[in-house]
Simulated assay, not measured.
Amino acid sequence: MSTDGSDSDPGRAVILDHLPHGRSEDDRPQYQKQPLAYAVTTENFRLVELTLLADASLSIGDRISIETDMIDVMRDVEYEDLSGGAQSELDYAIEEVIEDNEQRFVDFFNDAQPITTRLHALNLLPGIGKKLRNTILDERKRKPFESFAELADRVGGLHNPQEVLADRIMDEIREEDLKYRTFARREE
């Protein structure tokens, strides 16, 4: 299992749940079931189901390359298709990806642009209205943000930017019919 490289590499994922004996609703005999894992990719937050080779050894929270030879089949899944354990781990995995890739997400605040004449990408984040958006835009003109701590210090009212981002990413993962997606891309 590969554990080196950047989390923003499109070929990396975080394991959300590992089912060494396959799905419980699978009625086939145990010896016919392949082990499964559910994961979220670190680059675009795609949810995937991994059919593993019999000798694969994984734990919840492991970061893996999805190019690894322990994966037999990988397929995209929806939030509702995840196991209960994977759904409950997803928040934690997203928070860790954000924390481990702080500059990538701070740069979102530095680089976000208008989507339409009436809507700015910053307004997609929960709790960011016109006033807070304008404060962020004014502050980043003076000097780009270098960290979440600096962002929170310089923009009054934005107390936990990581949590705001995590909430938006969860919305993008859960909601099928969102008009705008910034972080969680769906495969077409």
Rank of each mutant, 00 (worst) to 15 (best):
S2K: 12
D4Y: 06
G5Y: 04
S6M: 05
S6Q: 04
D7W: 12
G11K: 06
A13N: 03
D17V: 11
L19E: 13
L19C: 14
L19M: 15
P20R: 14
H21G: 04
G22M: 12
R23D: 15
S24I: 12
D26A: 14
D27F: 15
P29K: 12
Q30G: 13
Y31T: 09
Y31S: 13
K33H: 08
P35F: 12
P35T: 11
A37R: 01
A39P: 07
A39E: 12
V40N: 11
V40R: 09
V48A: 10
E49K: 09
A56K: 02
S57A: 10
G61H: 06
I66M: 08
E67F: 04
T68H: 07
T68G: 12
D69G: 06
M70R: 09
D72R: 11
V73T: 10
M74F: 02
R75N: 10
E80L: 08
G84C: 07
G85C: 06
G85R: 14
G85L: 10
A86T: 08
Q87D: 03
Q87C: 11
Q87M: 11
S88C: 10
D91S: 14
Y92E: 08
Y92V: 08
Y92C: 05
I94N: 08
E95K: 08
E96Q: 15
E96W: 13
E96H: 15
V97F: 07
I98T: 00
I98K: 01
E99A: 13
E99T: 15
D100N: 10
E102D: 02
E102M: 03
F105R: 03
F105E: 01
V106E: 00
A112Q: 01
P114Y: 01
T116E: 13
T116K: 05
T116L: 07
R118W: 12
R118F: 10
H120R: 06
A121F: 02
L122P: 02
L122I: 01
N123P: 00
L124A: 02
L125G: 04
P126F: 11
I128H: 03
G129I: 05
K130V: 06
L132V: 05
R133D: 03
N134E: 14
T135H: 09
T135I: 02
I136N: 03
L137D: 04
L137T: 03
R142F: 01
P144N: 00
P144H: 02
F148G: 02
A149I: 05
E150W: 00
L151F: 00
L151N: 00
A152T: 05
A152E: 11
V155P: 02
G157C: 05
N160F: 03
P161M: 02
L165H: 10
D167I: 05
R168D: 07
I169R: 07
D171R: 14
E172I: 06
R174K: 15
E175G: 06
E175K: 09
E176L: 08
L178G: 09
L178N: 08
L178T: 08
R181P: 11
F183I: 06
A184T: 11
R185A: 12
